[in-house]
Design a protein around this nucleic acid. Sequence first.
DNA 1: AAACACTTCAACCGCACGCAA
DNA 2: ATTGCGTGCGGTTGAAGTGTT
Length: 267
Amino acid sequence: MGRTPCCEKEHTNKGAWTKEEDERLINYIKAYGEGCWRSLPKAAGLLRCGKSCRLRWINYLRPDLKRGNFTDEEDEMIIHLHSLLGNKWSLIAARIPGRTDNEIKNYWNTHIKRKLNSRGIDPQTHTPLNSTSTASTTTTSNNSIKKGSSSNTNSTTKFQLESQNSLTKVMQAPQIVRGTTSCEESNSSSGITTEEVNPAAELNLDLSLGLSVQPAQPHQQVTFQVSGYQKQGVCFCYSLGQSCTCGGSMAGSITAQDNLYRLYKPY
DNA sequence: AAACACTTCAACCGCACGCAA
DNA sequence: ATTGCGTGCGGTTGAAGTGTT
């Protein structure tokens, strides 16, 4: 039986995108917004698979992407987040503004791995390269953190190496909650992704690993502006474990439910 | 200048998840 | 409970670029 293909492969282009295809995709998304990727190619007049369009947009065409070299600060941030999250590139990318999971993954494989090796650190386990016995068990565990996976006794090994302080940082970090949206819902031109940050969900991730965790710090009450109006909200702003520094002027996203505004900042 | 080796990164692929019917 | 759809994720590939001999 199997799944139906995501597109009719014999009628789709593959490989590098042309400038004209890029323009078509950009123009379509500008007009109708992101989402409904399956039907987008036809609507936009593109002979491409929907997945290919999504990838091209997310990894290359999105206007909020930061191009150019990674800074040292970003390097260290990636290393730190990888030590906490493993190869969860999308989670890492969610905390580094303007960078995509693909970009970070490539950068990790081509630069940071080498950088850590030259420092004598195992890139997978973040432990000194000599401690091979520990590394052999933790490498697999690091990559075994699957969505919804059941607890794995090996999984705790790596995290036991981390300080309790680092665990607290993970808990305070916002998490992307994947959500499928209907085409109608997602056809806004806001440019804001449909992903929502949910610190509690990240807590669940850690709990699934059988960890003892500390409660996150209370969130800060802030005043901020939405469409020219002053609003009160709860700040989920987070700076790798440091207390809130946003002061209500948010660079991150804002969500609102029942007049309760939640402010998020990637880091 | 040519041949080869190595590196980079955009794009592809298969699978998993959430949701609706 | 089952199935199919739409989407997102992580691993992998291969073309293009760059460096070396």
